[in-house]
Structures are given as C-alpha cells and as structure tokens.
Design a protein around this nucleic acid. Sequence first.
DNA 1: TAACTAATGGTCATCTTGACCGGAAATCGT
DNA 2: ACGATTTCCGGTCAAGATGACCATTAGTTA
Lengths: 234, 234
Amino acid sequence: MITKRRGDVSLVSVTVDLVIFTVRSDCLQVLLIERGKEPHLGSLALPGGYVRDGEDLDEAAARELLEETNVDAERLHLEQLRTYGAPARDPRGRVITVAYLALGPDLPTPTAGTDARAARWVPVKTAISDETPLAFDHKEILREGVERARAKLEYTTVATAFCLEPFTVAELRHVYEVVWDTKLDPSNFHRKVTRAIGFLVPTGQRRVPQLGRPAALYRRGYATTLVPAILRTG
Amino acid sequence: MITKRRGDVSLVSVTVDLVIFTVRSDCLQVLLIERGKEPHLGSLALPGGYVRDGEDLDEAAARELLEETNVDAERLHLEQLRTYGAPARDPRGRVITVAYLALGPDLPTPTAGTDARAARWVPVKTAISDETPLAFDHKEILREGVERARAKLEYTTVATAFCLEPFTVAELRHVYEVVWDTKLDPSNFHRKVTRAIGFLVPTGQRRVPQLGRPAALYRRGYATTLVPAILRTG
DNA sequence: TAACTAATGGTCATCTTGACCGGAAATCGT
DNA sequence: ACGATTTCCGGTCAAGATGACCATTAGTTA
C-alpha cells in the first residue's frame, strides 16, 4: 500500500462517487459504469472520480455528474450521502470516497465517461441483488442511497426531482409507487399532495393523455419539507 | 499551499471533527476546545484530529471522542454528519474533514486533549451566535449538527441517548424541550412516548423525586425509528 | 352513443393530535 | 394529622388526518 505523509500526517486520495437515480420504464434505475481500468477492470461500479486540486466536494460531484450523464447538475437534486473510508476499501491505497445522491427525471442515455468502457441504466432491484457484483464497497453505498431516497420521499418534496416540469399528479404518484415499490390509492394521494403546502403549483394547463380524463399540470412549489408528511405504511 | 500528488492524483489530509452534544443545566451544550496550536491558536473549535493510517472513519471518531471526553463511544450515539472539503477551509493546505454528531448524557467535565489548551461545555445558543467566533468552518458544521439533532428527535428514538438509564418520561421530555427550545404538554407527551412502539421499556421501578408523585422508570426499547413520529409544530 | 379509462371529488369510520381537566402519590408546613 | 403543593399520569373532547371506497367528470375508442 502506498502511503505518503505531510509532516506527521498521512495523506489520502479523495474521490466522489455518485448514486444517480431516475425513474425509467416503471422502475427505479441507477446509473452504473463498466470500469475501463484497474482495479476492478470490467466490473460494474458507481460513476465517480478524483476530487481535483482547488475543487470543492460539491463541485467535484457536479462535474462528475456532467461528465457521466451530460446533464447539468442545476437540473438535478444533488446531496451528499455519506463518506466511506474503510482502510482497505481500495487496493490502490488509502482512498476515501464522498458519496453523493443524485435524483433526476428520465435522463438521456449517458455517454461513457473517461474512465469507463460503458455507462448504462440498471434497475435498482438488479443492481442491489447478490447476483450483481459491484466494485469496491459500491453495493453498500448503493443500498444506503436507495434507503435515503425512499426515506426522503416521505418528509421532503424531492420526489418532484424525478419529474420533468410540468408534470401531473399521476406522474408524481408513479414516482412514489416505483421508488417505494407499492401501489398507492390515486384519490388519497391526490388529496395529500395537493393539500401539502408549497408542494405543487398549478399551471392552469392540462395534458390530454392517451386514455382517460385530462390531468392538471403542476410545477414544483417552494417547499422543501413536506407538511404533512406522506408516510409509507405497510 | 502544500500539495502533493500520487501519480496524477492530488493527496489531501483527512480529519474527523466531533459535534458532541449533551443536555446540562436545562440547556443544550456542545463540547468545544480552545486550540493549543496554529492555525487558529487560542480559538474555540470542535474537537477532532487526523485520521490515522489504517483507521476507519468511525474508528477515528470514536478514538477522538475517547481522547477528548474520556467517555467510551459505546455509550454514546455516534453518527456521521457530513464531510466538508472547501479548498481553502484550512490554511495548512488541502484538508477535508468528516464531521460526526455525538449525543450523550451529562458527561464528566472533559480533560483537555492533546492539541487543546482546554475543553469545556458551551451552551449551543452561545456557540452558534455571531459573538462567538469558531475556528475553520466549524460554525457551519455546528449549525448543521444542531439542525440534524433537532430533526432526528422527531422521527427517531435518539433522544434517549441523552438520558442515563433508567430514566423517567419527564427526563425524556426535558431533553425534547431543551433541544427544541419549546415547552411540551406533559400529559400529551407522556401518551405519545409510551404508545410509540419499541421506544420505552418499563423497568417496573419508580423514582421518588424531591417533590411530586414518583415517576416510573424506563430503559431504551429496541426501536430506532419512531412510529408514530413526534413532530415539532409551531 | 355506449363503453372504457383515468382524474378528481366526496363520504365515512378510524386514528392522531392538542388543549385541558382531574385523580393519584409523594413531600412539606403547620 | 391534615391540607397545600407538586408532579405523574389517565381521561375527555373537538379538530384534523388517514385509509377504504364510491361517484362524477372528461376525455378516447368501438
């Protein structure tokens, strides 16, 4: 293991890794790359990379997001998840990684990044299963990302980050159903979501669907916390 | 600024910083140290220190906790808060810090640690005010720690981490009142906490106070999430 | 024009919450 | 000894939230 010191202090490399979720084809999907170099060459992994000199952590996450998905971080919800620093988590030496959670609407199919052979969307159900090995400790990171996303839908308004504006209540409900993997009563969901203060702003427009009654269109409101919360039960 | 590289990759120093809260004399207090060396010599700061070779982040946090407070981390609630890595946050060079939140019962007055001239409890109200300068970005970290602690009391059972077992419902209520800086209705609070599943385990014992009716004694239950949650309102 | 589908509104029993009252169980002062 | 005082803790009640479910609305399709 390579170890350098600055004075009495050990030095480490710092990376950011991204858990990027979207809702695609009725399914919560995560962006994974096929690693293009060692270690773990060819393995599936979370996209990420080294934090550069003079770069803040959030900046590094936004930059990696742009590189891997060609989507401006402005349009996504991006928040820090947790930092992972087990001494042996990377065979190259002491590398700690700051994991970020990114939530966005159905994004363009990503191009392969610099260090990756390929990048693609993988259903979360597949990615977290034991049959899908992931590089480093990325499976643990992914699992915590899923749990964080699920929990945040309860008491924050982040679910709207999965929707392209303007969106319908049904689209928002679909997000909840997919992320939580449950069915929700359309009528009760409609009531909750429209009464929650600052959650949705009606545009006055309507969208005519393939089938059924046209639905009102909304934009995100100013609220970030959801009161009252929408709780998972059962 | 000192910068070293390993191959193409910049190397940074990693520290852990601790936001240690306790409830003392009707007041939420945070453990601060007076720095014993540069930079920010003499300033108030959060306790913390460098992560050592071969040491996991949680281990480093537990070790620093022990060094600064002489309290075994087993008895405290310890969780990662967030990682701070603004490029210029430390004049010594690139140093990122993994902040931890620690919650515990009224702890023994701490001894000064290795890098500190003195360590003492400071009321949070004082510590976050503009009249109290803190070293580095520690004021921002402290503010986020306070907000995290307040939020966690709503939907988790961590409030019991502030209590020495066994404890009474009134002691637990006191924790909520101090952390949230509100008054709570004793009767309604009693109903909520005793009905919340897995929150409290009755010991069958009672404690006779200076004044008033004896109170039943409880221990922590198995639950970590609080259902139903106890929400702050108004 | 009837059938179909999805959006959205309404009803109702149940549960939770906050405000508040009152009894229980201890100590203290006289 | 006995009431005053304090705190614990149980009970009541109205208001609001929730889940289950039905009804209406507004489109398309056969």
